[in-house]
Simulated scan of single mutants.
Amino acid sequence: MIWTAKLIKHNNENRIAIQFEKNDRLIQRIKEFDDARWSAQKMVWHLPDTIENRIRFKIAPQSNSLPSSEGVEQIEKFKQWLRSKRYSQSTVVTYSEALKSFMVFYREKPIADITNEDVIVYNNEHILKNNLSASYQNQIVNAIKLFFQTIRETKMMVDKIHRPKRSKVLPNVLSKEEVKLILEAHSNIKHKMMLCLMYSCGLRCGELLALKPLNIDSKRNIILLKNSKGKKDRIVPLSPKILNMLRDYYILYKPKTFLFEGQIIGNQYDARSLQLILKQAISKVKIQKPVTLHWLRHSYATHLLESGTDLRYIQELLGHNSSKTTEIYTHVSTKSIQQIKSPFDDL
């Protein structure tokens, strides 16, 4: 493989741009890397700027962007521990990169000497100083806590590492009319089918793309979701209307391995292509909101609640561990709120 690699900034992210002569085999190879993306603006494929990718593509690391040799070694051990615990690859990458940021900050300090006070200093001098988000800070805290739980000789008191106060952000929800417009925007049966299935079953993007024909149980009118988030299986009801659409889709496309396959038979459909399908639908129906695929799942849950479905059933259908996660939809349901009369009307 003949390629050139260089560091770039893309959407305020540090990335590694990989350039090579256009070739289907090479494109397929680069897609196998975690979080590989194509930039139409820069006309390059690009990957996360990680230690592993810098080494893999022979980019000399900047001394101030890497932890100490001890830190690099410990991060690698941490990754091996996460994998042995069967954490997903995306979680392994997220936690190891979060820990790397902390280790870079304390590259001059032996890991055994790092204390809880150092976490506070890092939060103040790095997170807050650079206006980084509370969710990113929470990610760092999760990684630090998990890492120091695996280290024997340490001054860190894991139970006393504090988290940032969580912001109460409500889920974004579309009206039924808006959902209908989006789902009917595409004439392409595959594009229409994917969006309809996501909304009708409240699926996450990854759950939809991992579906296989054998997961569809047409006799029991259910879909079996295997190994979803949190390594859990669950079942969701399949509406007769969706089942009829699936039969038409299956006759036309005859998927082999995955229910929705990309240009190469047997390969999973690309998540970025699915996002583009939604973007095109929104543009066609002229909805101005910044809709994402996950909005369809939020809308599904909220519409179920507004139609009278018990919150416990919604929790099961969404695959939430805690009922508190599902309860957030009670704050965006308008069924009760619309019945409240404003005192302004009596003036």
Rank of each mutant, 00 (worst) to 15 (best):
W3L: 14
K9L: 05
K9C: 01
N11F: 12
N12Q: 08
A17V: 08
D24S: 13
R25K: 15
I27V: 08
Q28E: 14
Q28N: 14
D34T: 10
A36S: 12
A36D: 03
P48K: 05
R54I: 02
I59K: 06
A60P: 02
P61L: 13
N64M: 06
L66G: 00
P67D: 01
E70N: 08
E70C: 05
E76I: 02
F78P: 00
K79S: 07
K79M: 07
R83Y: 10
S84G: 07
Y87F: 15
S88D: 08
L99Q: 14
K100L: 04
R107G: 01
E108N: 14
K109M: 11
I111K: 04
D113Y: 05
E117N: 09
D118N: 12
V119H: 06
V121A: 13
N124G: 04
K129T: 06
A134G: 00
S135L: 06
V141M: 13
V141F: 02
V141E: 01
K145P: 00
Q149T: 05
T150S: 15
I151S: 01
E153S: 11
T154E: 07
M156G: 07
K160T: 08
K160D: 13
I161D: 00
K168W: 04
N172D: 14
N172M: 12
V173G: 03
E177T: 09
K180C: 01
L181N: 00
L181D: 00
A185H: 01
H186V: 03
I189L: 15
H191I: 02
H191C: 02
K192I: 02
M194P: 02
L195I: 09
C205F: 03
E207D: 10
L208S: 03
L209V: 07
P213A: 06
N215Q: 04
N215H: 10
I216F: 12
D217V: 03
N221K: 13
I223E: 11
I223Q: 11
I223D: 11
L225T: 10
S228K: 10
K231C: 04
K231H: 15
K232V: 05
P237D: 09
M245A: 11
P255A: 08
K256Q: 11
G262S: 10
A271E: 05
I277W: 01
L278K: 03
K286E: 08
K289M: 02
K289Q: 13
H303Y: 00
S307H: 09
D310I: 12
D310S: 12
R312T: 07
Y313M: 15
I314L: 09
L317V: 06
L317D: 04
L318A: 10
L318H: 10
L318Q: 10
L318I: 13
H320Y: 10
N321R: 08
S322A: 08
T326L: 01
V332H: 05
I340A: 11
P343E: 06
D346E: 12
